[in-house]
Simulated assay, not measured.
Amino acid sequence: MDHVDGNPDPNRRTARERLKAESERGAGRRRARRWFSVVGAVVVVAAVTGAVFALGGATEDEAEGKPLVVPADTVGEQRTSVLYGKADARHTLSVVVDPRCAPCALVEAALGRTMRELADQGAYRIEYRLATVEDDARGGQGSQRAVNALGAAANEGPEKFVRYLGAVLAGRSGREEWDGDALASADTLLGIAGRVDGLRTPAFDKAVRELTWLPWVKKVAAAHNQAGDEDALPAVSLDGAAVTVLDDDGVPVSSGEFVRQVRGGRG
Rank of each mutant, 00 (worst) to 15 (best):
S143P: 05
S37H: 10
L111K: 03
V48T: 07
K66I: 00
A119I: 02
R163M: 10
D239I: 05
A102C: 01
D135F: 09
A146V: 09
A154K: 03
A21W: 07
T114W: 02
K206N: 14
A110E: 14
R79K: 15
L169A: 06
S255A: 15
D135W: 10
K219G: 05
S81T: 01
R79T: 08
N148H: 06
D73Q: 06
R79L: 10
R12D: 05
G28T: 13
E230I: 13
A15R: 13
A89K: 04
A203L: 00
E17D: 12
T244V: 13
Q141V: 12
L169V: 01
R16I: 01
V251S: 14
V208W: 09
P71R: 02
G198P: 11
T59F: 00
R209G: 07
A146D: 11
K86H: 13
R200K: 10
R129P: 07
K66M: 07
E257N: 10
V220Q: 09
Q261E: 12
G57S: 09
D5Q: 08
V45N: 10
N155I: 02
D239L: 10
D197S: 14
V52I: 10
D248M: 04
Y124S: 09
N11A: 15
E210Y: 03
T49G: 15
L19D: 13
S143W: 06
G250D: 11
W178H: 10
K206W: 02
R31G: 00
V133S: 04
G157T: 01
G240W: 11
H91E: 08
A89D: 07
P158M: 11
A46Q: 03
R100S: 12
G28A: 15
R25L: 13
I192G: 07
T92M: 01
